[in-house]
Each structure stands twice: as C-alpha cells, then as structure tokens.
Design a protein around this nucleic acid. Structure first.
Length: 139
DNA sequence: GCCAACGTTGGC
DNA sequence: GCCAACGTTGGC
C-alpha cells in the first residue's frame, strides 16, 4: 500500500464536504496537472492519503482512502485528464499544520514542504507515521 | 492582496 | 527545441 496527500481549497471542497459523502466517496476531479495525474494513475484501491486544506487552514485535517481506480475526469471532455475516487476514513484528532510539518526535521523532505504547488503528491511511510503521531492518530 | 515558484503556451 | 510571456497556485 502506498501513501499520498491531496490538497483542496476548503472554499471549493472541504473536509466537511468529503465527510458528508461518506462511504460513497467522491471523484477527485479538476486536476489539470500532469504530475498530479500521473500519481493518480499509480494509485490502487485501498491506498491511503492525507486530506490537506490549503489557503486559510494550511493543515492536514483527515485521512482518505482510494475507492476507485483512475478513470476519465467527468468534469471535462479533454481525455488527458483522469482522476481517482476518494472516501473519508478518519478525521485528525488534531490537525497537523503546515507550520508543524516545517518545524519537524523528520518532515524536511516532504513534498508538501518542498514543492508547495503540487496538489497530488506521494508521502513516504516514514512521513505518514510522523504525521499520524503529530495528529494524535495510530498509524 | 502580494508575490514567488512553477507549469504551460506559442513564436521563432 | 529554446525561451519569453503569461497564467495559476498557494504561502504569507
């Protein structure tokens, strides 16, 4: 199993919105970046990811699971763009802020810290465990 | 609201 | 295939 991180502007699609979908999940549509799309192509059903609020919040607020493999993005006719479906798994007991990630030397190489503009990104197992610990969750 | 970083587009 | 111009993302 691999680990990922998904960014969303809370004004457009928030953790509350994701939670409201429950186990049905939701298409992670609207990605128009090749690197991000390529990562979604690598994903498998059952992979886990962090749900990150950009802009105002700047924090990891929940955990999601890939519940459908990569398929065409229904919000565009352009065949280049594809996406997976995600369902909410758990909320972070304590949100893990970007500031906390930057402050922890174990997370110095995180894509979240190093490449601020990539909206879908891989997370290493070590990073996953550190963030779960910071967020008050069992990894 | 500003701006840095990055990705994309298009002229040559 | 290079690179300038432009657009977008996202932190601050």
């Amino acid at each position: 199993m691999r680990y990922w991180l998904f960014k969303s502007e809370p004004d457009k699609w928030s953790w509350a919105d994701q939670l409201a979908r429950g186990d049905a999940g939701e298409e992670w549509d609207g990605i128009r970046n090749y690197q991000a799309r390529n990562y979604m192509r690598e994903m498998q059903v059952g992979d886990r990811g962090f749900f990150y609020h950009s802009n105002k919040d700047r924090a990891i607020v929940g955990i999601v699971e890939v519940c459908a493999p990569c398929h065409p993005d229904s919000t565009t006719e352009d065949p280049r763009w594809e996406c997976v479906d995600l369902r909410a798994v758990a909320s972070m007991p304590r949100p893990v802020t970007l500031q906390m990630c930057k402050a922890d030397p174990r997370l110095a190489d995180m894509v979240l810290v190093k490449n601020t503009r990539l909206s879908v990104q891989p997370v290493t197992e070590a990073e996953w465990k550190v963030i779960c610990e910071l967020g008050g969750l069992q990894a």
